[in-house]
Nucleic acid binder design. Sequence first.
DNA 1: TATTTGTGCTATCACAAATAGTACAAATTG
DNA 2: CAATTTGTACTATTTGTGATAGCACAAATA
Lengths: 119, 119
Amino acid sequence: MITLDEQSRIPIYEQIINEVKRNVLEGFLKPKDQIPSIRELATTLGINPNTVKKSYTALENQKIIQSKSTKGTFITAKIDQILHETVETCYNKIDAEIETLENLGISKNDILERIKVGD
Amino acid sequence: MITLDEQSRIPIYEQIINEVKRNVLEGFLKPKDQIPSIRELATTLGINPNTVKKSYTALENQKIIQSKSTKGTFITAKIDQILHETVETCYNKIDAEIETLENLGISKNDILERIKVGD
DNA sequence: TATTTGTGCTATCACAAATAGTACAAATTG
DNA sequence: CAATTTGTACTATTTGTGATAGCACAAATA
């Protein structure tokens, strides 16, 4: 299931890219699975087909999907392929925030304690 | 010192806002300190004065600076005023990334271990 | 034959960011 | 006094990106 966040600063076409990756990661999509056609997804999301096409082209360049003329578009990436980069990106963002907090004078122990208890 | 990241998706006027706050947080700027005039900062950064003005107006609305006609612009906020919101924002971002990682099947313990050793 | 698929292309719109330029009043400086 | 610098205010324009609109084509399918 692909959903969009209208408020986000992230453009729609990038959100679609992220959503497809998320669906693979969560096991909703597996290799050889067919994803919605450009026109169908555009209709579902209430957006223009060209916007979906832009996402699909990018995903194809990243070897995550493969489009076959007159057939449809299919998943090629395995979970592992996407997992690593996603996890790394997450940790990088966390590290950056921690660095900011440390620069504000907060000790790493305090930060870890606060993170441990959660929100 | 105010610097910009050309590549960032964050607009220049927002980057300036963040930079002023950062300088206060790091102790480079204190209450009553004068910050560069609109025209001067614009020249330094190689941008349009109107862009700087937009940032200063926003900062003034947030009670972080105060502009005095013909005098200049001055810091009013104390560190504490900005600290709380900044820290909260950081933790919120971290929490969001952790949630993503947990959704990918990584245990909180694993995440904390990875964070503990750092980058 | 009609439909659906991906693909490709051009043109256009919409919006926000940023720029350009001008002008004014008030204070400072020389 | 004259020149400069300050913030302020305003309009118009440019720019870049995202998104839309619309058309057309070839190939496979039903």
